[in-house]
Nucleic acid binder design. Structure first.
Lengths: 217, 217
DNA sequence: ACCTGAACACCGTTCAAGT
DNA sequence: ACCTGAACACCGTTCAAGT
């Protein structure tokens, strides 16, 4: 990729996000990123404070995308409908950048804009009649769901390819797991793929939390 | 550290867990691990299939610790009490290995023993009277909480050091956040530290999920 | 102000070789 | 069977130097 416009922090970050989306975050090195920009690796250090600064910038870029997507969602009368809409919009962004949740965590700086975003969520809780105490606990309970980040324990590969034979073997040592898989496979329209629709589960989990919180209002 | 007993996969993993606990997972390299074992880096390859295999083994070791801790928790009459006890026990293990949640995720193999552990959880849900459908959704909703893994959006540093001046500045652009912090600081016994007790929040979130699920039983 | 070349200290990993 | 030495391809980063 030959590029002719001059470098800038923003342009570096946009290209870096694209590279991470395409090949994964592990393949994103200073040298490869520089090559993609038609430049030497050391040039990046003029615009970014090293690899850590690059990763901070990537998180910042994705979270800005989350905030923008959230602002595009209209307010609803019910606080639950509003928040569900916001969080699902965030999840749509996350699906385009599956490497982003891994960046969240200790050692990574949270961009200041995110606090304004949490102000928005908090405001809608307070306006809905919650105390600061419960609103605070709600934020903890939501965890990273407002940012669209989910921690799935098992990847899609875990349940993707199960045939009759494996199911039978499972039935002996893990009867309940086997029965659950069998029951869900029977119900699903497509028996081999996607019986764990994580979007549906994401919304369902939100509603579980919302419904319990509603009683604290 | 001079070590004299012969190498083995298990001994390598035990020392690796200790190294990760002490210095973080980023500092855990094949060369440093080998040095800690009093051996050359290449020797590790006889016992483990490379760095990826090492990380798989680390996750395996931690999850085995979770399963062991869970089995030590006695069953209760109420399904909610049982599961809460199990998940909190898992969280205790996680606190000793804060790098472990970062290992969970795409690309990492889930050790087979974990499926037997989920069988346990699923069994207690079914016995409590849930359908397979709802039990399945419950497992999704719990996410990685059964393994004690939490995705905290903001690290402890984010709210650790806020003085009066910063609070006042926050009040203008983020009135609700500032009011919440002020209210919670007033209530807390120690005003500067630990006003976000993540153990309490972990249990609270579990109860929110449990209480909503109870209505589907 | 912006970019580069050469060099340094570190990775994970291979492969043939030692005992 | 178990461990090693040398070598390779790759990192992030420094520093003085170019324009």
């Amino acid at each position: 990729m030959r590029e002719r416009e001059p470098l800038s922090r923003e342009r570096v970050l946009v290209v870096a996000v694209g590279l991470a989306d395409a090949d994964g975050i592990a393949k994103l090195t200073m040298r490869r990123l520089a090559a993609e920009l038609g430049v030497e690796a050391m040039s990046l250090y003029y615009h970014l404070p090293g690899k850590t600064g690059l990763l901070d910038g990537l998180l910042e870029t994705v979270l800005a995308e989350v905030v923008a997507a959230t602002r595009a969602v209209p307010l609803a009368g019910d606080w639950r409908v509003t928040l569900r809409g916001w969080f699902l919009a965030a999840r749509e962004v996350m699906l385009r950048h599956p490497w982003a949740p891994g960046l969240l965590g200790p050692g990574r700086a949270i961009p200041p804009s995110v606090f304004a975003y949490y102000e928005l969520i908090l405001a809608s809780l307070i306006e809905a009649g919650f105390s600061y105490r419960i609103a605070h606990r709600a934020l903890h309970a939501f965890g990273s769901m407002p940012l669209g980040f989910v921690q799935e324990t098992f990847g899609p590969a875990a349940d993707g390819d199960l045939d009759e034979q494996q199911l039978a073997a499972m039935a002996e040592t893990m009867p309940h797991v086997a029965a659950m898989v069998a029951a869900e496979l029977h119900d699903a329209a497509d028996p081999t793929l996607g019986w764990c629709d994580s979007g549906v589960e994401f919304a369902f989990t939100l509603d579980l939390l919302f419904d319990s919180l509603e009683r604290y209002r």
